[in-house]
Amino acid sequence: MASNGSSPSAGDTENSLEKIKRQLTSASGRNLLQGPLLKRSETLRKWNERWIILDPTTGKMEYKMRRNEPVVKGTIVFDANSTISMSPVNFHGLPKYDGCCFYIGTPQKKEYFLCAETPGAAKAWVSTLQATQLVLKAHKEAVNSLSGSGSAKLGTVATVVAAANSMALESTKEIEAAMRISMRNALGMVSSRVSEAPMDDLTIMKETLRVKDEELQQLARDIRARDSTIKEIAEKLTETAEAAEAAAAAAHAMDEQRRIACTEIERLVNESQKQLESSMLKLGAYEEKVLALSKEREDILKQRDSAFREAQLWRSELAKARERVVILEGAVVRAEERARVAEADSEAKAKEAMEKDFVATKDREEL
């Protein structure tokens, strides 16, 4: 019975794992939010320009020294419980960065102070980071729901991932606009220093082609980096899927063991019932024997009581006989005493008669 009830739950777990796998796999088409930000160092409190890359579907936020560098310099770690908000205070200090600063604070007391080129870009970063927090929270609730300690639905994960991708796409436009503004400002500063010499069409075309070539090379590097990231995520997803399959196999094994245990318990219950029935039969036989022994004991007790009464009668008769013997012995003693007295009297009388006879004889002789 228990095995029949647990098989559907194992199937539901497998279906849920497959759905999560498909959702995570579909995240390969995600929109990475990247752009320049000023980051304040933790030790020297110095502002450094860094190229920030945020994956809104995984919450991974890395930064490099420059955009073209392949090596990642560091990672900004945050989670669903982190504090991410615009700062009313200009941490940087320059007036052009008013309204461009935002703050990331983690429960582990880790703080990051960042500054964008424009207030719109700063708001775009904050909005995307907050959408990423919703993705992290939904993923956590989905995992908890699979383990039975949460109530999140798989559709929620897909919804927040889609919303985060959409937010990243919109924020990318805002950041690109800020980058163009920054580029124009930088070009304006350079052009003010360069002479106003006119450029011919060929020079303009060459410069345009050079810029486009650099952009294409950068785009190719970004695509390679993205492909590498996608490959890493695919490998991690494969490992996750294998772990999920192993967990499902373990669940099947546990279900089989539970079924075997239930069968064994049912067998033991049947055996115990049979033993109980045989014990009840033996108990009935023992009760009958006890009743018979009780009756026999009562008969023996009655016989003992009658024997006690008869012995008491014999004791009383014996006492009476002993009294008679004592009386007879007293009579015998008295008779013997009288006989001795009579014998003594007869002896005295005989002696007196003999003396009288002797005296008489002597008197006769004297005569």
Rank of each mutant, 00 (worst) to 15 (best):
M205N: 04
V143N: 07
T203H: 05
R184C: 00
G148C: 13
R184K: 14
N144G: 08
V143E: 05
L154R: 04
V157N: 13
A197F: 07
M189L: 10
S145L: 09
E196Y: 00
P198Y: 06
L187V: 04
G188L: 02
D201N: 00
D201S: 05
M183W: 08
V190I: 15
L146H: 02
M183A: 15
V161I: 15
M199Y: 01
E176G: 03
M167P: 02
A142S: 14
R184H: 04
N144I: 05
A152Q: 13
T156R: 15
A158W: 08
S192L: 14
M179P: 00
L187H: 03
M189V: 04
A158I: 11
A177R: 14
S171V: 05
D200M: 01
E176T: 11
N185T: 07
V160S: 04
K153L: 13
D201H: 00
G155H: 12
V194L: 08
S191Q: 00
T203L: 02
L209D: 01
T208L: 06
S171R: 06
I204W: 06
I175L: 12
M183S: 12
V157Q: 12
G155S: 15
E170C: 10
R193T: 10
A164S: 14
T156V: 15
L202H: 01
T172P: 05
S171P: 00
E176V: 12
V157K: 14
M189S: 13
L154H: 11
L146F: 09
A168Y: 07
A158M: 11
S192M: 11
G155N: 15
L146C: 07
M167R: 06
N144T: 05
S191H: 07
E170M: 12
V160T: 14
L202F: 03
L154Y: 06
S195M: 06
T156A: 15
V161L: 11
V157R: 14
A177Y: 08
L187D: 02
I204G: 02
R193G: 13
A186P: 00
N165Y: 04
G155F: 06
L187Q: 08
L187A: 01
T208E: 01
V190D: 03
D200W: 01
K206A: 02
T159P: 02
A186T: 06
T172H: 00
M199R: 10
V143F: 06
S151T: 15
G148V: 13
D201Y: 03
L169W: 04
G148P: 15
N165H: 00
M189R: 12
D200T: 02
I204E: 05
A162N: 07
A162V: 02
A152E: 13
S195I: 09
V157D: 12
V194H: 04
P198L: 01
K173L: 09
A163I: 10
E170P: 00
R180Q: 13
V194K: 08
K206L: 03
D201E: 03
L154F: 12
L154T: 10
G155P: 11
T159S: 08
L154V: 11
M179T: 10
L202K: 00
I181C: 04
G188P: 01
A162S: 07
K206D: 04
M179H: 02
A163E: 15
G148N: 12
